[in-house]
């Protein structure tokens, strides 16, 4: 007997993501899912952004890592609530993990949650977490060919942060090629150039984020 199913395989994850989305809507919290390969600078960008946004929003960070709580320790230095998820063998966060992490946060107090996904340019793209916006961080030292090699990430993201821009003269990264590939594959993506170690370009990204959060939360 053949049974026609036509059902999304990821339905279980998507049900949980929908639950997260309902929860975020109920508490009026804007949620950003940050994806990148390991070492692109997600944590460093947050360390620069949090002090700039602190007067405006109450924030929390969900840190996804295979192992260690080093990133969470870096973030908690900035006195915002942090929940560390250690995925151990899993190369991405899923909606269930975020669901459990959110239980540890005082949601009434929050306007904005950053989810720092596990460093990986492939797998996180398949898992809806219930976030409002996905962004991808790429560093110039990784090479300008990464959007072409990992298109899903760049197609799903509302913004791309090109980090370590201060190192550009020391690499063969072709900015024109990068801009062309990314804007060819995603007409609406916003591109920001930053150097998280010096803070260069972070203000502009924070203003973009502020507008999104304000538009969504009406605060």
């Amino acid at each position: 007997m053949e049974i026609k199913v036509l059902k999304n395989i990821m339905e279980r994850n998507e049900d949980l993501a929908a639950e997260n989305r309902r929860l975020f809507a109920e508490y009026k919290i804007f949620v950003l899912n940050m994806m990148s390969s390991p070492g692109a600078g997600k944590t460093a960008i947050l360390e620069q952004a949090i002090p700039r946004l602190k007067d405006r929003f109450n924030m929390a960070v969900i840190e996804g890592d295979l192992m260690t709580s080093r990133d969470a320790e870096r973030i908690s230095f900035h006195e915002v609530p942090v929940v560390q998820i250690n995925t151990e063998s899993s190369c991405h966060l899923d909606a269930g993990m975020v669901n459990r992490a959110v239980e540890e946060l005082e949601l009434n107090d929050l306007d904005l949650i950053f989810i720092e996904n596990v460093g990986n340019l492939v797998c996180p793209g398949t898992f809806d977490l219930g976030e409002h916006v996905k962004i991808v961080v790429l560093s110039v030292t990784e090479g300008d060919d990464k959007p072409a090699k990992y298109p899903l990430m760049f197609q799903e993201s509302r913004a791309c942060i090109l980090n370590k821009i201060d190192l550009l003269p020391h690499t063969n990264f072709d900015l024109d090629r990068f801009y062309k590939d990314v804007s060819d594959m995603n007409a609406d993506i916003e591109i920001f150039q930053t150097a998280a170690v010096t803070g260069q370009g972070i203000d502009r990204w924070c203003r973009w984020l502020e507008e999104l959060v304000t538009a969504k939360n009406g605060s």
Binding site: E2, I3, K4, V5, L6, K7, N8, I9, M10, T126
Partner: peptide, 10 residues
């Protein structure tokens, strides 16, 4: 971007 079960036999 598809990822779905088309059918099962059993």
């Amino acid at each position: 971007k598809e990822l779905y079960i088309d059918y099962i036999e059993g």
